[in-house]
Every structure is written in structure tokens, then in C-alpha cells.
Design a binder for these strands. Structure first.
Lengths: 349, 349
DNA sequence: GTGAAAGCGCTAACAG
DNA sequence: CTGTTAGCGCTTTCAC
């Protein structure tokens, strides 16, 4: 029925003239307790509106059923979708998610991880900021023996497991697609090369060019962040340097959108005056004109694999870290990157 | 420097031949403790790599510095953006956010609130599902004396504070805009009328029609959920009923996108064959062709106001609930809802 | 089957 | 200024 606040085990124990131990066990269906007692306990617990106090339980158990999540941003298609899938799996396994947002600041990221450690989360899932270089805080995580899995944006070689897109391959694929369409002057609005995804995508881009006998021109590569504004500024920088590429390979979908804005400002039509392809898409892409040809980032799968791996590592302390999962991406054809000569869609089904 | 795991106050107390109380106070800069002692304590705490255990602290304090958030969905522009702004304010005030997603299921919503109560969050921020009718769980929250603020999708009249968009007014405005452009046969893909936003937006739509002498035709109103699929199905339903509206007022932005898909499937051009306006937009709207004319939902402001209100209520137990904040929205002009006769943009600046 | 005792790590109240 | 005592609510031995 109804009740006031904060009922404890003791309250319901007194009401039944038993001890709180009995109540605790009964509520958890411990075999010690008889069926009739269990029922009586459960009934009065319900009547009193008892709500277990997880804080007390966690302190006693040294286990919080809680996972800390650190992402650079939420309002971004990839992360929103990854978070949602992480969340679903966690929920099924009775874990709660504590979310923190680093806002691309390495300092905030470190502070968040500290808090999460202090909250004694059972594990950590992190996608690092675009400026993270210092790994001290991660060493601390290691020392505390808390499992951690990096996803999407990773730090390799420091011992933690990683789940990411097959970045090199995806970049290679989409750039190769541009080449096959007759493009030669292919610019790259790249991510900082100290980030895992920035580096691998750029390497994929370079390999694709080389394999097709195209010279790599450093002037066509602009490094920057992963946001729309970075795409905007990057393209203007290219333009102001007097460089007009036939097509731009954007390191992320927001960066591609930044190019759209810059192009419009400069009076350039996409895809006629300058074309665009990107790594990663969005559910909104189908509504954009022209819709962008991109290699997809399997956000749901990345989310799922990373949380599954983390849950595994939580339960298998002897088998933690050093696993690397790369998820294959595939090319999604839109209305950009169409054969220059014929104007025929490459492969629209 | 480095260390193993789980250092406690006692560990560092022993090392210094003091008691853990002294250490606890020193670490918290309690005035009791002398400067030199504080420094010694802090130094060895740092050297040992001490990380406070918030679980223990919270149990002792009966305060968790934690806020529970319940939303129907994350991967949706409005919520992602609101969450991010909520998060920012919480962070500045040293609160952590525990996020849960109800996935539009009232049952999951209730389960989540239970968990959050058991975790002893200091307050709750919730945007209800499209199917929430039962208010039992919220009564429980009241009984436990935990402050709660509804945002965007609210339940009025049960005593909790609410922060929402001025739904009635916004709907009125955008529908009036359509009328002023010469539209008369205006359909409404409405939200369920048992939801706050569904009801108020529909009322705004109806008032606008009435005030301009247009008969309200129930066949032009289809109630449903708030997702893209609902827009898709809703429009097909209209169409299959032999109704072809001049313009559709969608209860949310995703619903408007659903109309885009349905229209394309039916071979109808937007805005020529059928036009679209909506409540709520998206940062992607500018890239969509035609971009939609809509009344904006100030997600950032709603997020901020609701968390601020919640923090206020956490600290002022004697002044909780029953506050209603409605945030004004404004019309954002896109490429839809343009004067039928002239084809001239209404007000594009 | 049930309960008494002890402890998880920290903090508040009071005493010295 | 520092320490002693007690307790937050729950769980885990280990007796009875």
C-alpha cells in the first residue's frame, strides 16, 4: 500500500518479530529460509513499500552493477545510437549506465574517469576525445584493476581491449570508389593523426591513392577535429590555399556537412563543382540533397560488441584486455561520387 | 606514485600514525585540522593513489550527488540535445547523471524509476513515454520524498513541477502560418491525446483553424506516436482514406520525415503535391530539401531549466513541486509552407 | 531454519 | 587540533 519514506530491513523485521538477517535472506530467496516465512516477509515488504538501498548493498558487496560511460559528445548520430545500443544490453544484464560527456576535452575526460572510479563502477567504456594524448589516468584504471574497453576512438597498445570500425579498410574502399569514378584530385579533411580513427582513415586514404598510381599531395590533406565546424574551416582553408579538389573525403559525417555549408557560402554546387564523400553517415542522409555516398559506421554493432566484451571482462578478471575487435563497414551509395563522365549512378539499388 | 587497488582512509592513517577521522577531515579541508597535517595527509594520499569511495561516503551522508534521468529515446535530436545540456549543468554542480531509456514503454519506465530510487538518486528528471497513463510509480516517488521534474512530455496535476514548450501556442502559430499562406485543407498527424504534448498541440491546431473560420474535420486528424514510422503510417492512412490534404502539420520532426518517405513512395512531390510543417526541428533541417518550416523546440533551454529547477528543489525540500515553466518557441522558416499562389518565400532572412 | 556478530569505508558528534 | 564512539543499511560467516 502506501507508506512514508526510507523503510529498512529492520523496520520490516520488527514488524514480523524476526531479525533483519532473515528478512534480507528471504527477500533474496535464500535457500536458508522457509517458504512460509519468505511469503510473509515479501508481503509485508510490499505493504510497507520497501525499496532496497543499493548503496548499502553495494558497499557490502563491493559491486555496484553500474558501468561508467565516457563519450566526447551525445548529440551526434553515431554516439547517440551507440549509447542506445550499449544501454539496451546493459539493461538486459541488470547494469545501470552512468554517462559522462568529455566534450572533446582531455581534462574533463580525466576528471570524469576519476569520478567514475570513485563511484566504484564495475567497468568503464570510453571513446576518447580528439585531444587525448596523456595516458596517466588510464594507468590508474589499470592499477585499480577496473576493466575498461575503448570503442570507436581508441588508444591502442596500452593493454585495454578495443572495439572499432575497420577504419583503414573503410577509408580505402570509399576513396577507391572515388577513383573508380574518375576522380584524381581527391582532398582529405582528416582527423588529427594522433587519434586512432584520424590516423587509420588517413592511412587508408593514402594507400588507396598509392595503389592506383596517384601521387599523394600533402596540400590536399588538412587535419582537424571531427565536428561540422572543422569541416567548414577545413574546406575554407583548402580553398584559401588556392586548392580546388574534385572531391573531398571527410573524416566524419559532420565534417562532410561542414563542407556543404562552406561550399554553399562559396557558391559551389555539390556534386557538380566539388563532390563529397565521408566516413560515417546518418539516418538523416536519405533526406539530404544530394545524399552523401559514405562508408557506414556500424554504431549499433560497435556499441553492442563493446558492452558485451566489457561484461565478459568484468566476470573474467583473469582474461582482461588486449583484445581487438574491428567491425567491417560497407559502402552506402548516395547521390554524390557519381561517375563524372556519364553522370550515371554507380550502384543505386 | 603508483599503487595497487583500493586504498582506504585507514591505510593512509596508519602510514601517518593518526586516525582515519583525521585523514577524512584533512582531505576535506575541515577547519579542525592544522595546515601541516593537511599537507602531510594529502601528500601521502596522493602518493598512495588514494581514490575516495563514494559509495561509502554516500551511505554515510545519505546523499548521492546523483540524478536519475528517464527519457523515451536517446537517438533523437531533441533528447540528445536536451540530455547534453542537462548534463552540462549537472556537471558544473558536481552531480552525476544516471541515464535510463524507457523506449516508449511504460513498463520499462516504471522499472527504471524503481532502480533509480533504489540507487538513492537525489532527484529525478523524466520525460514520459507515449503510453504512460498509470501514475502509481510517481506516487511512490512522492511518498519517498524524492524531488522530480517532468520535462517536455509531462504529467500535469499530480503535484510535480514541469518544464515544457509552449505547445499550444507553438502549434497555433505554425498552423496560422499555413493558413496565412492560403492553405485550408490542413491535416494533423497528431500525438496520442493522452500525452501532454499530443493534446496541447492538437488543441493549438484546432484553435487556429476555428479562429480563422475553418471547419475542423476529424478525418484530417490522425493520432499516433512520435516516431518516423508513425508519420509514415499516418500519412498512408490519410491517403488510403481518400483524403489528400494540402498540407500536413506533423506533431514532431521525425513524424514529418515519415511523411517525406510516404510521399516519395506515393510519387507525391513536397511541397508541390503535398506540403509539410512540423512541431520541432533538427540541426539537420538545413540540409534537407525542401527544408521544413517548423516551430522550434528549445531543447537546450528546456534541459537547462529543468535541471536547474530540480537542483533547486533538491536543496529546498520545503518548496517542491507544482511549478510550471513553459518555454516559448518560435517559427523557423524553411522551404515548405510557402504561399501557394505566388511561390514567394514568406520570410526568409 | 534462524540469529548474533562483524564489517564494507566513510562521516558526524562529542570529548579530550 | 586530534581521537573515540557510533552508525549509515545491508550481507556474510558461523553458531545455535
Amino acid at each position: 500500500m502506501s507508506n512514508n519514506s526510507q523503510i529498512t530491513l529492520d523496520d520490516i523485521a520488527k514488524k514480523l518479530n524476526v531479525t533483519k538477517v532473515t528478512v534480507s535472506k528471504a527477500l533474496r530467496d535464500h535457500p536458508d529460509i522457509g517458504t512460509k516465512t519468505k511469503e510473509r516477509v515479501k508481503k509485508t515488504a510490499f505493504d510497507l513499500g520497501y525499496m532496497p538501498n543499493y548503496i548499502a548493498r553495494n558497499l557490502s558487496n563491493k559491486k555496484s552493477y553500474t558501468i561508467g560511460l565516457v563519450v566526447p559528445k551525445i548529440a551526434h548520430n553515431f554516439f547517440a545510437s551507440a549509447i542506445e545500443s550499449i544501454y539496451n544490453i546493459a539493461y538486459k544484464n541488470n547494469y545501470e549506465i552512468i554517462i559522462t560527456v568529455s566534450q572533446e576535452s582531455a581534462e574533463q575526460e580525466a576528471r570524469h574517469i576519476q569520478s567514475l572510479l570513485s563511484m566504484r563502477v564495475d567497468g568503464l567504456l570510453v571513446s576518447v576525445t580528439e585531444e587525448t594524448k596523456d595516458t596517466d589516468i588510464f594507468k590508474k584504471v589499470q592499477n585499480m584493476n577496473i576493466p575498461l574497453v575503448f570503442f570507436d576512438r581508441t588508444i591502442e597498445d596500452i593493454g585495454f581491449s578495443c572495439v572499432s570500425t575497420a577504419d583503414w579498410k573503410g577509408a580505402y574502399q570509399v576513396v577507391e570508389c572515388a577513383i573508380s569514378q574518375g576522380y584524381r584530385k581527391i582532398a582529405h579533411l582528416a582527423g588529427y593523426s594522433h587519434t586512432s580513427i584520424g590516423k587509420h582513415r588517413q592511412e587508408g586514404y593514402i594507400s588507396a591513392l598509392k595503389d592506383h598510381g596517384i601521387d599523394v599531395n600533402q596540400n590536399l590533406i588538412i587535419e582537424g577535429g571531427f565536428a561540422e565546424s572543422d569541416g567548414y574551416e577545413g574546406f575554407l582553408k583548402l580553398y584559401n590555399n588556392g586548392i580546388s579538389p574534385e572531391i573531398v573525403f571527410a573524416v566524419t559525417f559532420p565534417v562532410a556537412l561542414g563542407v556543404f555549408i562552406a561550399a554553399e557560402e562559396l557558391g559551389l554546387e555539390i556534386p557538380d563543382d566539388v563532390d563529397v564523400i565521408s566516413f560515417g553517415g546518418s539516418s538523416y542522409n536519405r533526406f539530404i540533397k544530394p545524399s552523401i555516398t559514405y562508408v557506414n559506421q556500424p554504431s549499433v554493432e560497435i556499441g553492442e560488441k563493446s558492452i558485451e566484451l566489457l561484461l565478459y571482462e568484468i566476470e573474467h578478471p583473469q582474461n582482461r584486455g588486449r583484445k581487438n575487435i574491428a567491425i567491417e563497414s560497407k559502402l552506402i551509395y548516395g547521390q554524390t561520387c557519381i561517375k563524372k563522365s556519364t553522370g550515371i549512378l554507380l550502384n543505386k539499388k
